[in-house]
Lab assay of single mutants.
Amino acid sequence: MLEGKVKWFNSEKGFGFIEVEGQDDVFVHFSAIQGEGFKTLEEGQAVSFEIVEGNRGPQAANVTKEA
């Protein structure tokens, strides 16, 4: 699992990017966010995740919000 911070997330469109120190930003789709209820992320929020190869390159999977 990697750790990063949410760079930005558009809850209307359901996607955004996660910043990872020393690496390129990683695309995140709302469907990759773990948990119940409305799936969104806040700018600057700490998250842990895995990287998988998507249709358009690397993207986040199994995203969990850090306490």
Results as ranks from 00 to 15, higher is better:
Asn62Phe: 04
Glu21Lys: 09
Phe30Glu: 05
Gln45Trp: 15
Ala67Asp: 14
Gln59Val: 14
His29Tyr: 05
Glu36Gly: 07
Val6Trp: 01
Gly37Arg: 06
Gly57Asp: 03
Ile33Ser: 02
Phe15Leu: 05
Gln59Met: 14
Val26Pro: 01
Arg56Tyr: 15
Ile33Trp: 03
Trp8His: 06
Glu19Tyr: 12
Lys13Leu: 15
Val47Tyr: 02
Val47Pro: 00
Gln59Tyr: 13
Lys39Arg: 09
Lys65Asn: 09
Leu41Arg: 01
Thr64Ser: 11
Gln34Pro: 08
Gly35Tyr: 09
Ala46Val: 14
Leu2Asn: 12
Ser11Trp: 13
Phe9Leu: 02
Glu53Ala: 09
Gly35Thr: 11
Lys5Phe: 05
Gly57Val: 04
Glu43Met: 13
Phe15Pro: 00
Phe9Asp: 00
Gly14His: 04
Lys13Phe: 07
Gly57Lys: 07
Asn62Leu: 13
Glu19Val: 13
Gly54Ile: 06
Gly44Phe: 08
Val52Asp: 11
Lys65Trp: 14
Glu21Tyr: 12
Phe38His: 13
Glu66Asp: 15
Gly14Thr: 02
Trp8Gln: 03
Gln23Val: 10
Val47Glu: 00
Val26Glu: 01
Gln45Phe: 07
Ala61Ile: 13
Glu53Val: 13
Thr64Phe: 14
Ser48Gln: 15
Val28Asn: 00
Val28Tyr: 03
Val63Lys: 00
Asp24Ala: 15
Phe27Glu: 02
Phe15Asn: 03
Gly44Cys: 05
Gln45Ile: 06
Thr40Met: 09
Val47Phe: 01
Glu66Val: 11
Arg56Lys: 13
Lys13Arg: 15
Lys39Gln: 11
Glu66His: 11
Thr64His: 12
Lys65Met: 11
Ala67Glu: 05
Gly54Gln: 05
Asp25Ile: 04
Gly14Leu: 03
Gly22Thr: 08
Ala61Leu: 08
Lys13Thr: 07
Val63Glu: 01
Leu41Glu: 01
Val47Gly: 00
Gly44Asn: 07
Ala32Lys: 10
Asn10Trp: 09
Glu50Arg: 15
Glu12His: 09
Glu19Arg: 09
Trp8Ala: 03
Ile33Met: 04
Gly54Ala: 13
Val20Cys: 05
Thr64Val: 13
Gly44Gln: 10
Ile33Leu: 10
Phe30Asn: 05
Leu2Lys: 14
Gly14Ile: 01
Gln34Ser: 15
Val20Thr: 12
Gly14Arg: 04
Asn10Ala: 09
Thr64Gln: 15
Asn55Arg: 05
Phe30Gln: 08
Lys39Tyr: 05
Asn55Asp: 09
Phe9Gln: 01
Ile33Ala: 02
Met1Leu: 08
Pro58Glu: 06
Asp25Leu: 06
Phe17Trp: 11
Arg56Met: 06
Val26Gly: 00
Glu21Phe: 09
Leu41Ser: 02
Gln45Glu: 06
Glu3Met: 12
Phe15Cys: 04
Glu53Trp: 11
Glu3Gln: 15
Phe17Cys: 04
Glu36Asp: 15
Lys13Pro: 02
Glu43Asp: 15
Ser11Pro: 14
Val52Tyr: 13
Glu42Phe: 08
Val26Lys: 03
Ala32Gln: 07
Val47Ile: 10
Gly14Phe: 02
Ala32His: 08
Gln59Glu: 11
Glu12Met: 14
Arg56Asp: 10
Glu3Ile: 11
Pro58Tyr: 10
Gly57Met: 05
Lys39Ile: 07
Phe38Tyr: 10
Asn62Pro: 02
Phe9His: 01
Ala46Ile: 14
Gln45Tyr: 06
Met1Val: 09
Gly35Ala: 12
Ser11Met: 13
Gly22Asp: 09
Met1Ala: 08
